[in-house]
Amino acid sequence: MKASFLADFHVHSNFSDGRHSIPEVIDLYGSHGFGAIAITDHIAEEGSIIGKASQWLNQVLTPATFPLYRAILQSETIRAWEQYQMIVIPGFELSKNSLSNHRSAHLLGLGVDDYISADGDVADLCKRIRAQGGLSIAAHPVLSGKFEKQTFHLWDRKEELKTLFDAWEVASGSILFEAVKNESLPKIASSDLHDRRQIRSYKTKLHCEKTREAILQSIKSQQLEVVFYDRTAA
């Protein structure tokens, strides 16, 4: 049965640099009446100094923590449905961070169950996400307007990469990306939530069956709306 519901496809937990545990994140979105979320914790490059430092500081998922992440996501997915009728989509954010913003890129993998290293070219990473049946999303590809690492690499190569991405973030948090909006690219909006206060942000509204497959298909076929979610309390 089709339903209209809000979704957020870019959410972090304390498995990377998010402030809240996965159960807390689920309770936050469930109590706000969301129909679907994707938990997308960071995976950093293992071959770079920045990536290695992030691993040592427990700020990213690693091959060692990923099995726990997946196990908790699996059990919490069941609880989210039973308690809130909310779909939880497993995901991650492959994070390639360099000193240069133009060599930095973040890619979301949605609907993916297995660990993928963030090392390698972004085109190969997209293919590896799709090989798992997942969607590859270009995360905050232009100036994000936030005090954070900027990631322009995907935007610099957008013509070459556009067939490899299922959607590009047109909004992240409370910032709408005019440059992305004006391009004829498939789009998605999400909060990039690290803290519960960031729930006030752009989101994606879907009208489809509440199943993982139907939700991913809606993103692929672009049957969605970009909306601003302004409620700060459930």
Binding site: I22, P23, T65, L68, A71, I72
Partner: peptide
């Protein structure tokens, strides 16, 4: 079972659960 120190990782998982 995949970890050498199941006790330490149990603690890690418990903390991640909040």
């Amino acid at each position: 079972s995949r970890y050498i120190a199941e006790d330490y990782m149990a603690g890690v998982a418990i903390r991640r659960l909040g």
